[in-house]
Design a protein around this nucleic acid. Structure first.
Lengths: 317, 317
DNA sequence: TAATATTACGTAAGCGCTTACATAAAGGTT
DNA sequence: AACCTTTATGTAAGCGCTTACGTAATATTA
């Protein structure tokens, strides 16, 4: 009946939220019952002030790992309830130092046994889980400190996307894709120059027949990206004409294309592999860096008017 | 440094909230990154709609254990995003039946692998806790279903309060307390009648010297309640003149006083123990019931004008 | 069959935090 | 000393749920 429960780890967030709400609602109700005029959400701040007096808003915030507006709001409420007093820091007029008021001090004795009851009851509930729940949360938080959930998800997504891309060899039926994919971004960022038209119009004549290669990236049967390997001499290869259609960018096609061309160059005995790209293309540059290229002084005559930087593959010694 | 962490079970609510926020923020970010136009908070509803179509708002709410306004809001957003369509139920014009739209249907294939990535990453994090976190939450929720945290806290508070009350024997220096405590509530609810004045003015002459007793409840050195045992004959005792000062009510003083007087009557060989109270005093009545009294036909001549009901102690056979 | 209770849905506002932004004081730099 | 950066605080608004409440449709009951 309870789908959230069935979904297990998939609806883990909803699950935790529900549990949190359930527990904290009960705790606040217990507090209210006592008619002490104390809200549970004040508890961490109050407790901190029993340990230390003259603490600033941000001081409390960082000790409790809350944001400072949260503390500001709680302090406002506690102030209105007469539990704290605040004074300006003599040495730093920005800071507002909080301490418990007389009334706040005297509340401590009333609250302490109540805390103990709540802690005991909570422990009782948590012990039903059969494990040390608090310790388990500690470990989960440590794991998150080490590497965020976000990063873990993203790396999985990337691997999946990378695997979903198929690298396809050039054949003449795909000739138009090679031109169109490159035109798409050239038009967007620059103008198409004669040198572009020449190479993109006849990849067979200009690239493949000279010992180079053209490959394509395919997802679900659709060509979405391309790239070429141009042979300059037996030892020198250039990766060029990389293009991925805009809608399919950030899906690791560039990475898989580059790696495919790089492998091909290495297999052909390349000693020098380079590429040219534009300084604005920061995602591309960082991709190339990840794959082992580094920015270098240009060593070939620029063939295009557009500004470019040269990157060279760093062979491992 | 992190006080919330140090507080352990005492700040368990804050702890859980923090973890929840951290996890769900990362998950939503991953979703947003994908640019699918899908919010994580829609997930449970969306998932349910992949299993069943034509589900009503309250139907979804109860399946997911959310409130219906939550579902209403989520449905509104999903509607605006074009993921669902809603039709009126032919048999019940109040109900709005939700189903996935074409667009919603086609999203399923995009979302499924993403769900899997998120589930895997979450599992990875949770496995760091070294225990089956989801199962642990299951058990905690079961424990809560059995008996709420609130009830567990309250019963601890009551025991503590009960233990904090000291029962004090009558002595003439406490004579005024006996009168004042009784006058306090008599004035509040009725008028003081001659019969009251007589007994309350001279407990020694009217109660104690006739083989009865007067006791007091004391907290932190202060007398806060009183009660009397009146002897009618060797076998018949009456519990009467119970009073607890208003500010100290609900602290189990009445219970401890009654139990003390009851024990005394039983020790004296009572065969019949009764008391009179007013029908409006429902908290008192339920207290007496808990202690073994039951409402009975009055069997003594009414001594006061105020309306009253008689309760008799039920001896176990 | 009229009155009453229940149910389904919707809307507004609240809760306890957050992010985003503004302001003023303090500290650093040239 | 003028300028920029950083820090402490405050305020507004948002988020994702909740409670509270209103209205209309349906079910129940006398």
């Amino acid at each position: 009946m309870d789908l959230i429960r069935q979904l297990g780890v998939l609806a883990f967030g909803s699950r935790l939220r529900r549990l949190t709400e359930r527990l904290s609602k009960d705790v606040s109700r217990s507090f209210r019952d006592q008619g002490i005029g104390f809200e549970v959400r004040w508890f961490p701040v109050f407790y901190l002030l029993t340990l230390e007096s003259e603490v600033s808003i941000t001081g409390i915030a960082s000790a409790l790992q809350y944001t400072h507006p949260a503390i500001n709001q709680i302090a406002g409420e506690m102030d209105r309830a007469g539990l704290i007093v605040s004074t300006r820091d003599k040495n730093d007029e920005r800071r507002r130092l909080l301490s418990l008021s007389k009334k706040g001090q005297s509340l401590i004795t009333d609250l302490k046994p109540l805390w103990a009851d709540i802690a005991d009851a909570t422990k009782e509930i948590l012990s039903m889980s059969g494990i040390d729940f608090v310790a388990a949360i500690d470990k989960v938080e440590e794991a998150l400190d080490q590497r965020q959930l976000y990063d873990r998800i993203v790396s999985r997504i990337k691997i999946r996307q990378y695997d979903a891309i198929e690298i396809v060899e050039y054949e003449s039926s795909l000739k138009d894709h090679f031109r169109e994919l490159n035109y798409e971004w050239l038009k967007k960022y620059y103008r198409i120059e004669p040198a572009d038209e020449k190479v993109l119009g006849d990849p067979e004549g200009n690239i493949i027949s000279n010992g180079g290669a053209v490959v394509f990236a395919r997802i679900d049967g659709r060509i979405i990206g391309t790239g070429a390997l141009i042979k300059h001499d037996d030892q020198t290869y250039e990766i060029a004409k990389m293009a991925v259609t805009e809608r399919m960018q950030r899906r690791q096609a560039g990475k898989k294309l580059t790696r495919a061309l790089l492998d091909r160059a290495l297999d052909s005995g390349a000693v020098r592999i380079f590429l040219e790209t534009s300084p604005q293309m920061t995602p591309a540059i960082s991709l190339y860096e990840k794959l082992g290229f580094e920015i270098s002084e240009g060593f070939i005559t620029p063939r295009y008017k557009r500004e470019s930087i040269t990157m060279v593959y760093k062979f491992e010694k």
